[in-house]
Design a binder for these strands. Structure first.
Ligand SMILES: [Mn+2]
Ligand SMILES: [Mn+2]
Ligand SMILES: [Mn+2]
Ligand SMILES: [Mn+2]
Lengths: 149, 149
DNA sequence: ATTGAAATGTATCCATAGCTACATAATGGT
DNA sequence: ACCATTATGTAGCTATGGATACATTTCAAT
């Protein structure tokens, strides 16, 4: 059996938890970020101005309308939105459910950070990324903390 | 001027903060995730077994050795690591500095979540993703909370 | 009804980040 | 010294997500 031991390997055998799992979870969460941000934005825009258009999403997300178009095609393929050429964008029931969860979670993460003493500005900036990696267990802990303070 | 007003637009003009900025920040953080996870893993492996090899990184990160190879080429291009064919991987001074920061921040995020009542398992899983979106201000708030509890 | 500006769509390019399949190098056990 | 196993490297595929340049469609003002 070649290549088995390393320069000073015999000390610690294997780490207690498989670290590969944490990275896989992190990558999995990252893959859902786009869908979550889009459905959340579509729900926000529809609530705020009656409809969500491609330009609105592009402005809101800080990308070009081309990126929005291709992403919407993927979201439609995956059953989150329904679009017709040159028309407004609508969430499917599934997309609407996801949007509700994301809005709620986003709100909780922002409120939690502010309760902790983080400025409104930094809380909003950090939450936009953090929200996608907060498990239900951690979200519950955030909510407990908010209620207690 | 066509296409100016929307179905019930005149109510709220523009949101208080430009939301596009938060998404740009989030995407920027996301782009650094890979580099941060790799240098952190290289530092860990080097500390634990004297050297970091491609196979070790592949096992640790849960990807194939091919993915590790291409990523290392990018990290070398960007000045974080130095590699020679069929040899172990070394961090440059810059890579080492980044690794130290990442290890410290990772540790803080995990400890913070546990202090908040999150289980060790969930804390580790969530921290792997959250860490990359925690600003210095929020990190400082986490540290204050840990010290106070 | 016309028409020009805005919105939307399409073609094509680039970088990142995963994979399988195959080729070559290194090394420990014999 | 040999060689089988392991480690490493390379070729080429896919998907996501960003961009610019150009084409087409809509729609509000005239
Ligand atoms: Mn987000
Ligand atoms: Mn959000
Ligand atoms: Mn990480
Ligand atoms: Mn980490």
């Amino acid at each position: 059996m070649p290549r088995t031991d390393r320069k000073k390997a015999e000390a610690s055998a294997r780490p207690p938890v498989q670290p590969a799992e944490t990275f896989r979870r992190s990558r999995h969460d990252r893959a859902l970020e786009t869908a979550q941000d889009y459905v959340e934005a579509i729900a926000d825009l529809t609530a705020a101005q009656g409809e969500a258009r491609v330009v609105d999403l592009a402005r809101r997300l800080g990308v070009t309308h081309v990126t929005v178009n291709r992403t919407l095609a993927r979201l439609q393929r995956d059953g989150y939105v329904s679009t017709k050429p040159y028309r407004a964008i609508f969430l499917t029931p599934g997309g609407s459910r996801m949007a509700d969860e994301c809005r709620q979670r986003h709100q909780t993460v922002v409120a939690f950070l502010q309760t902790l003493g983080v400025s409104a500005k930094a809380a909003e900036l950090d939450a936009e990324g953090i929200e996608h990696h907060v498990s239900p267990e951690t979200l519950a802990a955030f909510e407990r903390f908010i209620k207690k303070h």
